[in-house]
Design a protein around this nucleic acid. Structure first.
Length: 290
DNA sequence: AACCAGGACACAA
DNA sequence: TTGTGTCATGGT
């Protein structure tokens, strides 16, 4: 990278950048020799880790870098989060397998739209869909000379103005109708998504689940990854398997039962615990990763 | 080459 | 309330 770019060094002990950016919560980060390239709102940024330091470079003047620190949750106290986890064998194994895994704090619309596209899709495919959405409907973002062009995540208004066939060209299949309708709802009301910040979890979840294509799981992902409700525990197929075989081996447990167990067992940072179990399952499941 | 993927939804029973 | 078929697409 050029040495004239705006840059900052962030103290990041107990932070594993690669694991965090690759753990299936955000879908746009790409690894190059120079580091992880991504877009946060309308800013391009390149990140790489040197031991206990994360080095960030931006393409434009970065102000106080709060937009980045907030996204990375660089000031979160991971040790005190881990201290609230239950001390059973399964959780200990997950924690030791995922050292430095953090939860990001994402922009709500990008998070919501991405997870609407995520249903019964592998993470590689979700990345592909999101990438195509940005290329077709996003705006070009300022990048340093010599860096591949990159685009912002398209606004709800921009997606709402698209047609369903256009969205299907991004290979999202039946999810196109959901995304289009939800974009329409979100774009129609000023601050539709902002209002959720002031609500309690059950009310915010209820509002999200009014949106087409948003059920309990996707709503919970948005509450956790975008709004920072750390108690929320999304149950997907991986976590369901994890709970089943780690906590209820040799018996079939309904998904409602598993959700109830999770909500009562993992404490105030259950969502964090969920991400550890999710990643643990994915790196320790049979055929290598994925 | 089948099987399955960070599900949601309408519709049984 | 819980179970089943359907919806696209492509990775492994």
């Amino acid at each position: 990278m050029q040495n004239s770019l705006p840059a900052i060094r962030l103290s990041a002990a107990t932070y594993d950048l690669a694991v965090t950016l690759n753990s299936g919560q955000a879908f746009r980060w790409q690894h190059y020799d120079s580091g992880w390239h991504g877009v946060i709102r309308d800013r391009w940024v390149c990140l790489h880790q040197e031991g206990d330091t994360i080095v960030a470079e931006a393409a434009l003047p970065a102000g106080d870098w709060r937009w980045l620190k907030d996204y990375l949750q660089i000031d979160a106290d991971l040790a005190s989060v881990l201290a609230t986890f239950p001390t059973d064998d399964a959780m200990r194994a997950a924690v030791s397998a995922c050292r430095g895994l953090r939860l990001l704090r994402q922009e709500p619309w990008e998070c919501l739209a991405s997870f609407i596209c995520s249903s019964t899709k592998q993470i590689v495919q979700i990345r592909q869909i999101v990438s195509m959405l940005c290329e077709r409907f996003g705006d070009p973002v300022k990048v340093p000379a010599g860096v591949a062009p990159i685009f912002s995540f398209p606004s709800a208004a921009r997606i709402a103005a698209a047609s369903e066939p256009e969205l299907r060209e991004c290979k999202m299949g039946f999810r196109a109708g959901y995304l289009l309708k939800t974009a329409g709802v979100v774009a129609s009301g000023e601050g539709w998504l902002d209002e959720l910040k002031s609500l309690a979890v059950p009310a915010a979840r209820e509002r999200l689940m009014e949106l087409p294509g948003v059920g309990r799981k996707i709503a919970d992902c948005v509450l956790l990854f975008a709004y920072g409700f750390l108690r929320v525990f999304p149950v997907d197929v991986w976590v369901q398997r994890a709970l089943g075989q780690l906590y209820f081996p040799r018996r079939t447990t309904s998904s409602r039962r598993l959700q109830e167990f999770a909500d009562s067992h993992f404490g105030p940072n259950a969502g964090y615990a969920q991400q550890y179990l999710f990643h643990y399952m994915r790196v320790h499941s049979g055929r290598e990763n994925r």
